[in-house]
Amino acid sequence: MASRKKAMTPKHESDRMSEAGPKSGSESDLSDSEMQIYIKAVEDPNVLRIAVMADPEVTLGFLLAGIGYQRDRFRNYMMVESETPQEDLESFFLAVYRRANIGIIILDYDTAKRLRNVMQRCNQLLPVLVTVPNKSSLTTYLDKKERNRRLRQRDAY
């Protein structure tokens, strides 16, 4: 005896949906196979990621912007405190710098100063090293920028 599937009418389908309850905003309309395809697309090795090494406030700002990534005991960010050992900074920087899927490394001004010797040996095209000011170094950064502007202006005369 062959089992027959009962055709669902729109009324039966809406009853079944109401029994399951409304979907929350975090639930997805994707099936399992579609979700696997989506996950594979996100894990594409051709996608370049951004890494951050900065003080906690700057790093948290970038994490809130959505650049945080953690996979297989690797994460693309490091919150640097003044007590962070130089050895840890250098090892994390080199680990991030050598990864093929990192396209930009964002460093705050203080961390970049601490890593100056290591950064001078780095001459690859990618990843691009970007230095951003933090609260404590903003005045120093702006003073240096103003000083350089004055020197350029003086040289132009």
Rank of each mutant, 00 (worst) to 15 (best):
M1K: 04
A2L: 13
A2H: 02
R4T: 11
K5Q: 03
A7N: 01
A7P: 02
A7Y: 13
H12N: 09
H12T: 12
E19G: 08
A20S: 13
P22E: 12
S24Y: 13
S26D: 05
E27V: 06
D29C: 06
L30G: 01
E34K: 07
I37G: 05
Y38M: 14
Y38I: 04
I39Q: 09
R49P: 00
I50Q: 01
I50S: 01
V52N: 01
V52A: 14
M53L: 14
D55I: 02
E57S: 13
L60E: 12
L60Q: 05
G61M: 08
A65N: 12
A65T: 06
G66C: 07
I67P: 02
R71A: 01
R71T: 05
F74N: 13
R75Y: 01
R75H: 06
M78L: 15
S82N: 07
Q86G: 04
D88V: 11
L89F: 07
L89A: 05
S91R: 15
F93C: 14
F93N: 03
A95K: 09
V96Q: 10
Y97Q: 09
N101G: 00
N101R: 03
N101Y: 00
I102N: 02
I105E: 00
I105D: 00
I106K: 03
I106W: 02
I106C: 07
D108I: 02
D108W: 07
Y109A: 10
D110L: 15
D110T: 10
T111F: 00
T111S: 04
R116L: 15
N117S: 12
V118L: 09
Q120N: 08
C122L: 14
N123E: 10
N123T: 13
Q124E: 09
L125W: 10
L126F: 06
P127S: 02
P127R: 03
L129I: 13
L129F: 07
L129E: 06
V132F: 02
S137D: 00
T139P: 03
K145I: 11
R149V: 11
R150W: 03
R150I: 12
R152Y: 14
R154H: 09
R154Q: 14
